[in-house]
Design a protein around this nucleic acid. Structure first.
Lengths: 356, 356
DNA sequence: TTGTATGCGTTATCAT
DNA sequence: ATGATAACGCATACAA
């Protein structure tokens, strides 16, 4: 007996959806043939394709990918966990990742982590429950060894990545580019300002690169590692004291400052401009990231530009490779994690031009 | 005969998933009881709950929400189409929307529109294929009448919204706040700078509010509508010429400038500071949005702060209400679109303080 | 409180 | 080239 039970869903507003069964009945084909129309149209005669095509129009068929997922096991979902979106770097990465839909067709389920391990674990479980095929992790909260244990393709971006695949900017090269630019301007002292950074995250190479370059070239240099917290106010406060210390210590000397991100570079620049009405000749500043603030600053700031579009594309691309591999009958999983490097691009603006 | 067919999926890497059937066999309950454990645990005895709970552990069960969706018809998916993520306003809105997961439990499928109608229609079809329960649209591309025809709960944010529900900032009030602040400082002339804006989008009320306030209070004023394009360079160029015109036209007069967004306010400010080394007393500037650039500018910029967290929360909340309504046996769909207003907050900073 | 039967809408397998 | 039928893993109406 058909429709012995009446499900509450059937009497809901959206009425009943048109399914393959309806199309089949209407066209006198089987459901299988309708399915073939979508997945292997060439196996049908052209006439029959036309018949089905018409029926779809007539009945106003809407595809249901949920059913397809259940039957095929392929969700075409990628999960993303991003630490936040107020830093331009992350929102732009997300932007570029989402844009790869046009290339790869994967859909993205996005979560914003909140620095809390348990919360992010819940997010991951939720993502797994939706049968995502792979994950891109930008959040730093969960150690890569734990991520690796999830047994699902994973790519991380600019975070600790010992046990998982990753795509990172070549931070070392970026630091070299920045430092050598300052050196070419014959600064009397090179200064690197950064926040406390764990040695196992890629950004630590910015410190390493600066140090190596200065030492290799016997340049007078100084590394200032200082906590800044996350607010503009506290960063501003800390940079103010760093600035006054620099002015005392290196009075009259030409100071080349490589500071670890554009936001902080902008704050430092503003402190100086507020004090002198301009950027004095004995200050050269270069930031890192190539974010809009560097261009929009009162004096456009030189910076090491991350190629975010490439980073994002490589990340998705690397993930897709693994996900494809997994769909083969005899998958050959990667034995060693792959770590891709994207070279940054030096962007020269006014803060490193000689103004005398 | 069991397992008459062997599906290729079963021999894939992930081996076979543990299902309710396995749990049922292991515990000697029926699949229904296992299902109840998840959906209505109190209908089981505490002992049996424990038995099942143990079995889940032992067998390492992972829930499959795709199957649940197919059976229940509820995806808990909300689709989002955002125009871009390089404007801080949009990335912050997205951030806040995603954060409502903790409150409402809905997951988000996110697409970045690219101003192309056909593309965005494809995105919408894809979202519908995944059986999203509702949509939040920030993109301006598709007219609200077309959105309304989709027969799915929709909320838009700060865009043309005649035929759909929406949440917007009270732009009119924001303009009043900004203009009256300038007025209180006894400016000789009030100037509003904006870009060409369609009358049917909420932001047009910024112009209307400025105009009404000035006329009602018989204030000398001027509205400058000028194309700026999307790049920093072109906006900078256009604002430079606007600035020089203002300096000629209103030389010696105290100028109160209300400019339509913080990014442009910052550019204008920088042009002035580059010229004079500071912001002269006869310039007062107030922006709109309350984005980070207003705080991080060389001289912190007064602005009309959008309460993005509230906007996002109200949008999701309004959407959830509709989605819930739809799940009732006798849904009472809204007859008229609902338009919620969020009042902005005036943020006073240095650019509107008297400096003489 | 628990179980049985049926359905959700597609894809995969085998057969013709 | 097409069809019949069994999955996919879970939820729900109804019975007990």
């Amino acid at each position: 007996m058909k429709n012995k039970y009446l499900k509450s869903r059937d009497i809901m507003a959206q009425s009943k959806n048109v399914t393959f069964a309806d199309i089949a009945k209407y066209t006198n084909f089987s459901k299988t043939t309708i399915s073939r129309y979508f997945n292997d149209p060439n196996s049908l005669t052209v006439e029959n394709q036309a018949i089905i095509s018409d029926a779809l129009e007539k009945l106003n068929y809407k595809e249901n990918k949920v059913a397809r997922i259940l039957a095929s096991g392929k969700t075409e979902f990628i999960g993303i966990i991003v630490p936040n979106l107020f830093l331009h770097y992350y929102s732009e990465i997300l932007n570029q990742i989402l844009s790869t839909y046009e290339t790869f067709g994967y859909k993205f389920l996005v979560f914003v982590g909140n620095e809390n391990e348990e919360t992010e674990r819940r997010y991951i479980q939720e993502l797994l429950a939706y049968k995502i095929e792979g994950m891109i992790i930008l959040s730093h909260t969960i150690p890569s060894i734990e991520l690796a244990s999830l047994q699902i393709p994973i790519v991380t971006i600019e975070r600790e990545d010992r046990h998982v695949n990753s795509v990172n900017t070549d931070n070392y090269m970026g630091a070299i580019q920045a430092t050598s630019l300052l050196a070419r301007h014959n600064c009397d002292v090179l200064i690197h300002i950064n926040t406390p950074t764990s040695e196992d995250i890629p950004a630590y190479d910015r410190i390493r690169g600066f140090k190596d370059f200065c030492e290799d070239n016997h340049l007078n240099h100084r590394i200032i590692i200082h906590e800044m917290e996350r607010t503009h106010e506290s960063a501003s406060m800390h940079l103010r004291s760093i600035l006054s210390e620099l002015e005392q210590e290196y009075s009259g000397l030409k100071k080349g400052i490589f500071i670890s991100n554009d936001t902080h570079a902008n704050i430092l620049l503003n402190l100086i401009v507020r004090k002198y009405g301009t950027l004095p000749d004995d200050f050269l500043i270069i930031g890192y990231d190539g974010s809009p603030v560097s261009k929009e600053a009162v004096i456009p700031i030189s910076t090491v530009g991350q190629q975010i579009d490439k980073i994002a594309f490589e990340a998705v691309s690397l993930l897709v490779t693994q996900m494809d591999e997994r769909k083969k009958r005899r998958p050959a999983p990667l034995r060693e994690p792959v770590h891709k490097m994207i070279t940054p691009v030096l962007i020269r603006r006014e803060t490193t031009e000689d103004r005398d």
